[in-house]
Amino acid sequence: MKDSAYTLCYAAVMGLVAAGLLSGVGGLTAPYREANEQAEKVRNIMKVLGVEHDPGASAEELVEVFEREVEVVEKDRLTYYRFSPEDFPPDQKRTAVQFSGSGMWGPIAGFIALEPDMRTVAGISVYSQEETPGLGAEIASEGFQQQFRGRSIFDDAGKPGLRIMVEREARDEHEVDAITGATMTSESLERMLNETIKILMEEGLKHG
């Protein structure tokens, strides 16, 4: 009995000390971590929109370039990031929105950018994911993401229809190849992209 009481006390004290240490370190590093996460988000938005920036830039510099170059428009359900590349006429802008959803192991979030015609993909990026390294995590790789460039977000019937093809090779304008061995991740990504495209269409119609 005495032994059990000692064991319980030991466990309780250990738990308290560990919790105290962790919240202390967590609190101290929070501002830096948040700044880095913000910069990472901004870096991804600028990447899909094609905003030129110094790859070695610090977090503050990135946010500064972002605020100067990118127009941010908030609508009901999505935030729109708009940017006009140098070789475009000034009134022609690419538009990026965030997509997110649950993958196989955890949340996935990223950005998809559309050309001014609002149907051709300018690029996508995944900035947060916890998929299987080497398989599902390949959605964060440049090689996978490059496939999306120039694809159409609509299928032949004009519905949101970006397809990540698991069963066969990509052929059509709105198809890209899935990652072998990562069917569930590919399907989740396809679903969240199309959900976002659907909201984009609805909001686009409503707000003109």
Partner: peptide
Amino acid sequence: IAKMAIIAVLVIIVDQILKAF
């Protein structure tokens, strides 16, 4: 389990420092 707790605390500290700096 006590050892695991000690190790976990140290690992999380390293992880947070990496994420911050």
